[in-house]
Write a protein that binds this DNA or RNA. Sequence first.
DNA 1: GTCTATAGACCGATAGAC
DNA 2: GTCTATCGGTCTATAGAC
Lengths: 188, 188
Amino acid sequence: MGRARATREQIIEAADRLFYRQGYEHTSFAAIAEAVQISRGNFYYHFKTKDDILAAVIDARLAERRRMLERWEAEEPTPAGRIRKYIEIPLTNRADVQMYGCPVGTLSTELAKLNHASFAEANSVFTLFRTWLREQFALLGHESEADALAMHVIAFSQGVATLANAFRDEGFIWREVKQMSDWLTAYE
Amino acid sequence: MGRARATREQIIEAADRLFYRQGYEHTSFAAIAEAVQISRGNFYYHFKTKDDILAAVIDARLAERRRMLERWEAEEPTPAGRIRKYIEIPLTNRADVQMYGCPVGTLSTELAKLNHASFAEANSVFTLFRTWLREQFALLGHESEADALAMHVIAFSQGVATLANAFRDEGFIWREVKQMSDWLTAYE
DNA sequence: GTCTATAGACCGATAGAC
DNA sequence: GTCTATCGGTCTATAGAC
């Protein structure tokens, strides 16, 4: 049981990484199996279909982001400090962002085009951020516009990620994050 | 000769549409051939490889966007009015944007993940916008920061498109475009 | 008769699935 | 390990305009 669980998690980890770097559709069973160094037969013991793996990857991402937000709440005493943590994501992950874009945004974009059943599930990561940011803005005393501000911050992040990916320009990320961080001071 | 040209352009048109709606990799020869109502054999008379079609689609998009910018220059006498036209794109195309995102951004994102040779070519549409917006900001007297402002506007557009696609929220587009339009007045 | 445009059988490789 | 579907891509035959 412990062994099966470890293998299962290795598969999810490898799939997560490959879906992010190569896209969901472009990633084959064989590629994941090879990355985990297991046979395809063993593979099917853990996941019956590719959609099953996708669902597991999305669940894992959701759980990981939840933990990240909890960590931020422990580290940053003020709502503004927490929002700033979110704004800085493209900078914190700049190497990956330039190479592969945002994991959440690019998966959402791909699943939208595939008309995939897990499209809504994948967007629940966006919703997690949206709800959390909304809370932080509400704590800052901007209840009535909290949701619009939350969406604005996420949109900023997505725009920066997409262009940083297209142009592979780190200076651009620095400038945009600085600007957004300055914008936030008006709401502190 | 005239017949061939018509067929060729029909193929490019159908491929453009399908690449946008379903993604490049997810769109098969068979799907394009069916959309144009020709056989797959005929198809290969006009394009040898799938990459050839992609290149033709990118060229067509570049030409189309160039014409659009020229149209805007004719219609809008002021640089600010022209920039505003760009800012309003997500609103103008809101139905498609909500369903399929931005054609330029989503193709760039997909080709980045596929490590596709035409990645740079696809981004030339971004560069077209970037150069054009930079010129408009320079005309407004903001030469030193013109490029950063151009990138900022494109990033805004990409962020709005990605989130509008994920949440299928038209109100969000209206709010963001309004906000960005107001932001622009500070530079007029 | 020639050339353009079209059709469709066919190929090897690889995909997801069992 | 195998099965079936489908992928991108090649090849040949031929219909029709000139």
